[in-house]
């Protein structure tokens, strides 16, 4: 197995809020290798977007890393100077957002911005940058890339914009592409096309991709490995097939059981996970999921769960799971 391109080691991060702090990430360790697609699944508030932001060092101003490292090609990016970090972004690591409108400035044409994104390429004539941008738009499936180059972002449809945003992210051939809810704002048919496109691009460029989404269908379609997050921790990590066919953590099981797309019979009533997410500024002493867990014991409520290794690339953060 090849070396990890991007790895997060024991990362803890909290947000300062009026009247205290919110523990957004607690001791998260994850790695993604070249040519691998890692999915990060979880519901709102689980910390998955914070983790994605931390991976590319785009945390909010009120975020505070309390421990851990984010290593890109072996270098701890959190220890670098701001200028060095900036140089990595866009070149070695790039991001695609949920709302492709935010990826582009509304007052410049898509083409001008795609040329601009290549400011790092010293000595390359503008004409060549333009050609590279156009070719990349063609590569992501825009049927008339020359026309699209001259358009403003709002003149493209949502699906086109997301394709253009992916083109922008891949323009510098980054080693890692991070996509935060890349299909959530799109219709089903467009979602299928973007999933398809990401898979093709991944096969071509062999870059590592991290997909952050609440959509279990997108993860199943696209990812090699999955990390399931809950209340700021990774509760289960597994190869995709194992996760969907043999989920071990009670939260993963409950999450999969709720997905209406996985329930064959039309029932009218669907299973839900009762209760709610614990207060992240005042976490319980034991397992964060204990209050909603069907198999929780007193031990679960009292002591933090251990990370149990369950075979190659598999682990779960649970007292009640046995290898």
């Amino acid at each position: 197995m090849s070396e990890a391109v991007l790895s997060v080691e024991n990362l803890s991060l909290r947000y300062r809020v009026p009247g205290g702090t919110v523990a957004a990430l607690r001791n998260v360790s994850l790695a993604v290798r070249q040519g691998e697609v890692l999915g990060i699944a979880g519901e709102s508030g689980c910390g998955k977007s914070t983790l994605a932001a931390a991976m590319i060092d785009l945390m909010g101003a009120n975020a505070e890393v309390t421990s851990g490292e984010v290593r890109l090609n072996g270098r701890d990016i959190l220890a670098l100077s701001p200028a060095e970090r900036r140089r990595l972004r866009g070149r070695e690591i790039a991001m695609v957002f949920q709302d492709p409108m935010t990826a582009f400035s509304p007052v410049l044409t898509v083409g001008a911005q795609l040329v601009d994104f290549q400011f790092n390429l010293d000595g390359v004539p503008g004409r060549e940058k333009w050609v590279r941008a156009r070719d990349m738009l063609a590569r992501v499936g825009l049927s008339d890339p020359e026309l699209a180059m001259g358009r403003f972002p709002h003149e493209l449809s949502g699906g086109m914009r997301q394709r253009a945003a992916i083109a922008a992210a891949l323009l510098m051939r980054p080693a890692v592409l991070i996509a935060d809810e890349p299909t959530t704002a799109l219709d089903v048919t467009m979602e299928a096309q973007i999933v398809h496109l990401l898979r093709e691009l991944q096969a071509d460029y062999r870059c590592a991709i991290v997909i952050v989404t609440h959509h279990l269908g997108v993860i199943a379609e696209l990812c090699d490995r999955v990390a399931v997050m809950y209340a700021g921790v990774v509760v289960e990590e597994a190869p995709v097939d194992a996760l969907y066919h043999d989920p071990r953590h009670p939260y993963t099981r409950a999450l999969l059981a709720c997905d209406p797309a996985r329930i064959e019979a039309a029932t009218g009533r669907l299973p839900a996970i009762g209760g709610r997410l614990p207060d992240l500024s005042n976490l319980p002493p034991g397992c964060a999921f204990a209050a909603r867990c069907g198999i929780a014991t007193d031990r679960c409520r009292a002591t933090p769960p251990p990370c149990v290794a369950l075979g190659p690339g598999r682990s779960a953060l649970c007292h009640e799971v046995t290898p």
């Binding site: 048919t189 096309q193 269908g217 969907y244």
Partner: peptide, 21 residues
């Protein structure tokens, strides 16, 4: 057919629908 199936064993190999509305 376009709906992503939450089962990695049922991955689509090709697109069910192309183009935009």
């Amino acid at each position: 057919a376009a709906e992503p199936k939450p089962d990695p064993r049922k991955r689509r190999t090709d697109l069910a629908i192309r183009g935009e509305i």
